[in-house]
Design a protein around this nucleic acid. Sequence first.
DNA 1: TATTGTTATACTCTATAACTATA
DNA 2: TATAGTTATAGAGTATAACAATA
Lengths: 154, 154
Amino acid sequence: MEKFDRVAGVGPAALVDGLVQLSFAVQAVLAAAAAEHELTVPQVRLLGILRDREPGMLQLAGHLGLDKSSVTGLVDRAERRGLVRRVASRDDGRAVRVAVTELGRALIDRAEGEIGDRVRALAVALTEAESVTLTALLDRMLGGRLGPASDSTW
Amino acid sequence: MEKFDRVAGVGPAALVDGLVQLSFAVQAVLAAAAAEHELTVPQVRLLGILRDREPGMLQLAGHLGLDKSSVTGLVDRAERRGLVRRVASRDDGRAVRVAVTELGRALIDRAEGEIGDRVRALAVALTEAESVTLTALLDRMLGGRLGPASDSTW
DNA sequence: TATTGTTATACTCTATAACTATA
DNA sequence: TATAGTTATAGAGTATAACAATA
């Protein structure tokens, strides 16, 4: 006991604080980078998922962790802007699949580039070795979900 | 070059991905813990700031990074629930200060306890040494803002 | 009956612009 | 005039409950 009390910024409380503060910093960067392309964070997530998928509304809701009715609105707004389109399923008259348009794909590519730049900038204070260490720790915390960039969905 | 291509989950892209994924994980935990006490994340931030301050609306807007009109709404909803109250300033007839009530203080204490537990749980996969390393890296990224827990504001 | 998706409704959060009251 | 705060308005995002159409 008394293992941490003497050093400010160390110990379980500082870890919680750091994780929370960092999450706000990352989200702020995400929102700002998205806004630069007239997107919101949920819209970026939506388009990111659609980059290599053409899911139904329920699958989309599952990916996003949202209610299906929320996804209806999200897709409505994206469709109104020409970023995605609903495609009627041939085998199931009730179902639709959601596909990204060329416009949407171009937009998400640019937005994610900007997001990458800005998030990377959060780590400029770290040496390359520290970045590698951090990446490994994040991977452990996320249960090894940090795979090849291709299926980075968040 | 070709420094990273061979190992999945390492390299700048994996770092960006990890930071983004972690930020979503932390925010989800925050929202869930807050909801358990019928709070939202912005309400938790508000009450957290008021734990050791009694700021005016503009100062509050500064702390939260929001427009003053947004803060009006935030404080309105908290006041309606009896969590905060507006106190008229004696020296300036235009100004109000916002103070947390006993009810609000009790609520934020419980909510932050739960948040601490749940955020800590995100790091269970790490050894104690790794946690210390991670905390130090977070501190570096945040520009040394991880001080004693007392002024943890986010 | 069960499933897929939309609609109706309601709320929180946020911003911009215009306004009130005081300084 | 400048400042502190509110109001009016608008829009995104989210959920719950009820509904329509198809399976």
